[in-house]
């Protein structure tokens, strides 16, 4: 497998509020995502997860380092699902998708196919205001998929939804991944979401942010949230981000033999 996206020695700093000094948010961060894999990034609030996503989609530029897409010869197509759907409310559902497909130079039939993937084809002529929050977020997901993306960025995509809708969305995302095998990078606070959906989870810690742990999840899909190994990984990830300790210390804190063993081997094996 080859890398779909590669972050090399990424550093990013911002001016502080008094504008006299700069605060480094990310320093020498390097990692990559393999083709067809879904990587989640978790960590405490304000650590720079969203900054990392903004750097990847070009909304911000790194101070140093580079981001290389696997298919560097062509302009990479990046689909993004934001926390809020960010739909143009004066356009119908299908028109919202056409804006993205037209800009990406992709046939409009892809929009309809993506709508069918999120089970919203019958709402194609509806205006976003007439849809529920979950349906609107499904339209946003369809927009990201419609451009035949090289990579899909998900910025806490289900955090604005109620738990039931979020759970449905997670199952839908898994269903779509099984069909399309897209490459994805997801920012989330929800460790269960990360454990359930991802092939790999990066845990960010410290100031400036560093990768404190890389946790692989090799359990085959389709997965179930109730699955013991998913729950075990969820608990492990929760401990990693709640404890202000290094991964070595975290491993010592996990007292049961199972949990220690879980750290030593990839999840789902």
């Amino acid at each position: 497998m080859s890398a779909a996206i590669e972050f090399s020695n990424i550093s990013k700093s911002y001016a502080t509020t008094d504008k006299r000094t700069r605060r480094t948010v990310l320093q020498d961060l390097s990692f990559s995502i393999e083709e067809g894999e879904l990587l989640s990034i978790i960590g405490p609030s304000g650590i720079g997860k969203t900054t990392l996503l903004h750097l990847a989609v070009g909304l911000e530029r790194p101070d140093s380092g580079s981001i290389r897409f696997g298919s560097a010869s062509e302009k990479p197509r990046v689909g993004m699902v934001f926390q809020q759907p960010r739909l143009l409310e004066w356009l119908t559902v299908e028109e919202n998708l056409y804006i993205a497909t037209d800009a990406a130079g992709v046939d409009r039939s892809e929009a309809l196919s993506a709508l069918s993937d999120v089970h919203l084809e019958e709402y194609r002529r509806a205006y976003p205001l007439t849809l529920s929050g979950g349906q609107r977020q499904r339209v946003a997901l369809a927009r990201a998929l419609a451009i035949r993306p090289n990579i899909v960025m998900l910025d806490e995509p289900f955090s604005a939804l109620d738990e039931l809708s979020a759970r449905r969305m997670r199952l839908l995302l898994q269903e779509i991944w099984l069909r399309r095998r897209f490459t994805g990078m997801m920012i989330t606070h929800n460790t269960l979401e990360a454990a359930f959906l991802s092939d790999e989870v990066l845990v960010l810690k410290g100031k400036p942010a560093q990768i404190s742990e890389r946790v692989r999840n090799q359990r085959p899909r389709p997965r179930a949230e109730e699955d013991a190994s998913i729950f075990e990984m969820h608990r492990h990830l929760s401990r990693l981000i709640t404890d202000e300790q290094t991964s070595d210390e975290a491993a010592q804190v996990l007292s049961t033999e199972d949990s220690t063993a879980a750290l030593a081997r990839p999840f789902g094996c």
Binding site: L88, I99, A100, A104
Partner: peptide, 24 residues
């Protein structure tokens, strides 16, 4: 501004932005 950001991420062209975002 979040809509402008969305248009930027999806590389929506200038005229399409004026027509579908700014004017409405």
């Amino acid at each position: 501004n979040s809509l402008v950001e969305m248009a930027e991420v999806y590389r929506v062209g200038r005229w399409a932005r004026i027509r579908y975002l700014w004017i409405p």
